[in-house]
Design a protein around this nucleic acid. Structure first.
Lengths: 256, 256
DNA sequence: CCGGAGTTTCGAAGCGGCGTCGAAAGGCTT
DNA sequence: AAGCCTTTCGACGCCGCTTCGAAACTCCGG
């Protein structure tokens, strides 16, 4: 076994079509799959299409990935890890729970929107017993717990109303995940067929709106929202939004 | 053509298995499909399984429904119509925009939770050009517009902060649709595999929590939330929740 | 009682998607 | 030159949705 990725190797049977791509077939497959998942949706994308886009015949995909779910799994790995890392950064930066939560909501919306697929579609495809499914769900549970902890902290400090932290954390993530597909080409729930939809809004706008709405709903002293926004904007964490936005959609960074 | 539904007719070729069910095959198919969609999810349910549960062979399904999407479409018809009728009722009952919106959010969560399938799964399956898809999306657009109108009304009256009505309406519906699957048996995003999940909460609890959070985020005078809750609880509209909850899941009322 | 029309069901088969198997076609090492 | 390893592919099986045409029965008119 080897699968010498990131190395442009000349070993192995040559392709029927001339060699195309970067020299790292695994990366090419993920890039092709991400692009197709983005434009057509996951279920509507066939292995044959992915193979063709990657310059391979369909069976060759199974040398690099166990099955279609594994391809999705490799792309999905980002889906929780990016927000999780973000939460860690925000927590390390410190500050009141309100400011941290505001930043997290805003960044989470942008991060989810930047994914090459609708995260809701993933929740249905990855419900088998595969290993990547297990890690995905475990990481997602951790993300919920992290948000829950921040909410709980805000409640005990008196910064937030006495809400149920777990329920609130779930609500926050549900909003984020529900809004991330408004601007997708393939039948988004907001940008429905035959309608202008919500494509007019940028992920950044949506994130700020959602963060405002949620925080104002939580704060004991709603007038504190302005200072929270100010503090969050000052933090350089929001600068990363620009980065995340540009690298969007098409899996430019290599998946690992 | 006839398809004499609701009539227990003795015409037609007899079934290989003895005649089972209510005498209305169309209804039997929908009931069987609803039950299976609920327990296994839509994608994981095969036509053969639906046929078996309805006491038919697979091809016979296509006498009553054009295809699998049509079965889903018949079940989905409720998904928008119930909330739409509810919004009409609430608007007719009158009162300030805040109280109406609170009731709508709460009822919408309960109504969506009572559906025999995950509405998010529908958003992906019904993106073809079929007629029931068109009506579904049209009705959904109308639901968005109704909520948007209430928000706009609250904003102009000064009851709500000056938010973007459309963005807010989309956020509200996104939350509702994101939370409706926390208590489903088949891989809900909240009640994830290998975790206690959010199954502990009833749809009613979730709805009230979401309504509180959203309304408090919108109200110019957050302290008004208490009176809104009181007013909403007084309205007999909430009594319908009990009804909706009992008739849940399994498509007891005949679909038309 | 007979024959045709209408209704409902089914068996056989097509098609397209995912995934497997074993072999083929190269380079690399000895 | 002879293996060995890596990568790719062709042929194939299986399962899902769906179509087609015929079968099986009732009903009704004569």
């Amino acid at each position: 076994m080897s699968k010498g990725s990131t190395v442009k190797s000349k070993v192995g049977r040559p392709r029927s079509a001339g060699a195309t791509g970067s020299g790292d077939p695994r990366h090419d497959v993920l890039a092709a799959a991400g692009k197709l998942f983005f434009t057509k949706g996951v279920a509507a994308t066939s292995m044959a299409e992915i193979a063709a886009a990657a310059g391979l015949q369909p069976p060759s995909l199974y040398y690099w990935f166990r099955n279609k779910t594994a391809i999705l799994g490799a792309l999905v790995a980002e889906a929780n890890r990016v927000p999780l890392g973000m939460v860690a950064d925000v927590n390390q930066a410190g500050g009141p729970a309100g400011a941290r939560l505001w930043t997290i909501i805003c960044l989470d919306v942008v991060a989810l929107s930047a994914l090459p697929f609708d995260i809701n579609e993933v929740h249905r495809m990855v419900d088998d017993g595969s290993p990547e499914a297990a890690t995905y769900w475990a990481e997602r549970q951790q993300l919920i717990r992290e948000v829950e902890a921040i909410v709980a902290e805000g409640v005990t400090s008196g910064e937030f109303r006495p809400v149920d932290p777990r329920l609130t954390a779930l609500s926050v993530l549900a909003s984020d995940e529900g809004s991330q597909n408004w601007h997708r080409p393939a039948g988004g729930a907001g940008a429905a067929p035959g309608d202008d939809g919500a494509a007019a809004y940028t992920p950044h706008q949506i994130g700020e709106h959602l963060a405002d709405l949620t925080l104002r709903g939580l704060l004991t002293r709603p007038s504190g929202l302005d200072s929270i926004r100010a503090r969050a904007q000052r933090s350089d964490l929001l600068q990363q939004i620009a980065v995340t936005e540009t690298q969007s959609a098409v899996v430019s960074t290599d998946i690992r």
